[in-house]
Design a protein around this nucleic acid. Structure first.
Length: 295
DNA sequence: GGCCAGGTGGAAA
DNA sequence: TTTCCACATGGC
C-alpha cells in the first residue's frame, strides 16, 4: 500500500524550486505594490505574471513555482536585487532602522507597464483593500479568463479598456476614476503615449510624459517609475509617507512644504530611495491603529 | 454617521 | 506661489 503524501509533499513534486535567500514573499505581496495575488488556501499564492498564471509558495530560502515559470518569477520578484547592498545605502536613523527590521526581505517587484499604470491610476484616495477590489472587478469584467483559475483573469489591455464605456468602469467601483482610466487607456492605445519607448528615457522625461495622462500626477507617476520602470530612486510621497516624514524627520518644522519634503527625500534616502520609501510605507501601514502616527 | 483612504486638477487667494 | 475644494466609494 502506498503511503499517502502530505499536502506539502504533493505540492512540491508538482512545483519547481528557485533559490530565494533574503526574500519575504507574503510581505512583498502584502506591501501595497500589487493587488491581485490571492492565497491558495495552502500557505501559497495564486496570481498572474503578465498573462501567465503562476502558483508560488515559500519554504525558507526556497521558492516553489509553477514549472516553466522559474525565469519569469525570478525576474518578477526581483530576486537579482542585491538587498544587502541596498540596505547598506539606507540612512541609519531610528525610523528607517525599525522599518528595515520589519520589512526584511520585501522586494520591489518588476510589474508590467500598463497593468501598473492602470492599477495605480485607480488608487487615488482609496485604501489598499479597495484598490484590490477594483483590480479584481476590472480583470473579471474585461480581462481574458483563465481556465481553472477563476476568479483570476489577466489584466485587460489598453485596447480592451479603450473600448469600454465610462458606465461600465464605474460599475467596477471606480467612481470619478472611471473617466481618467478610460481616457488614459485611449491615449495609450492610440499611441499618443508609448509606454515601452519610455523604458529608455531619463526619469524626468518618463515623469512628465506620465503626468500628461489624465488622472496621473506626481504620486502615481512615481509609483509607476518605481514599480514598473525599475527606477529604484523614485520616491512616491502619499499621505502615509508624508506623515512619516513630518513626524520623524520634520518634527522641528511641521509646516514644511511639499517641495521641501520632496527635496529632503531625494537628498536623504539615496540611490535606492524607492526601497526606503516602500519599507517606511509598509511599516507605517502595518502598525495597529492605536499606535499609528497621526497628524 | 463621520472620518479617512498609496491624489488630481482647476480655481481662488 | 500656496491653499482650497470637488470628485465616488467603501470600511471601520
Amino acid at each position: 500500500m502506498q503511503s499517502k503524501k502530505t499536502g506539502l509533499q504533493s505540492f512540491m513534486t508538482n512545483m519547481a524550486p528557485i533559490r530565494a535567500p533574503l526574500f519575504n514573499l507574503a510581505a512583498t505581496l502584502d506591501s501595497g505594490q500589487v493587488f491581485h495575488w490571492m492565497p491558495d488556501g495552502d500557505g501559497g499564492f495564486r496570481g498572474l505574471i503578465g498573462e501567465m498564471p503562476v502558483q508560488v509558495r515559500q519554504e525558507g530560502d526556497q521558492l516553489w513555482v509553477t514549472p516553466g515559470t522559474e525565469k519569469l518569477a525570478t525576474r518578477y520578484f526581483a530576486l537579482d536585487h542585491d538587498l544587502e547592498a541596498i540596505y547598506r545605502s539606507f540612512p541609519l536613523d531610528p525610523t528607517m532602522t525599525r522599518a528595515l527590521a520589519f520589512c526584511h526581505g520585501v522586494r520591489i517587484i518588476r510589474q508590467p507597464l500598463w497593468e501598473c499604470l492602470a492599477t495605480f491610476l485607480t488608487s487615488s484616495m482609496k485604501q489598499v483593500s479597495h484598490i484590490r477590489q477594483m483590480s479584481h472587478a476590472i480583470r473579471t469584467r474585461f480581462g481574458r479568463p483563465l481556465p481553472g483559475w477563476s476568479p483570476l483573469a489577466a489584466y485587460p489591455s489598453p485596447e480592451r479598456l479603450a473600448q469600454a464605456t465610462e458606465a461600465e468602469l464605474r460599475a467596477c467601483g471606480l467612481g470619478f476614476r472611471a473617466k481618467n482610466l478610460l481616457a488614459t487607456a485611449r491615449a495609450v492605445h492610440s499611441g499618443k503615449v508609448d509606454l515601452e519607448a519610455l523604458r529608455h528615457k531619463d526619469d524626468g522625461v518618463v515623469l512628465s510624459e506620465l503626468c500628461g495622462l489624465p488622472g496621473v500626477g506626481p504620486k502615481i507617476a512615481n509609483c509607476v517609475l518605481l514599480f514598473a520602470y525599475e527606477r529604484l530612486s523614485a520616491f512616491p510621497i502619499d499621505v502615509w509617507i508624508e506623515r512619516v516624514l513630518r513626524q520623524s524627520y520634520f518634527a522641528h518644522k511641521r509646516k514644511a512644504t511639499a517641495g521641501e519634503l520632496r527635496d529632503f527625500a531625494a537628498r536623504s534616502f539615496g540611490p535606492c530611495g524607492g526601497y526606503a520609501q516602500q519599507y517606511l510605507f509598509h511599516h507605517a501601514r502595518s502598525q495597529p491603529r492605536g499606535k499609528r502616527q497621526r497628524r
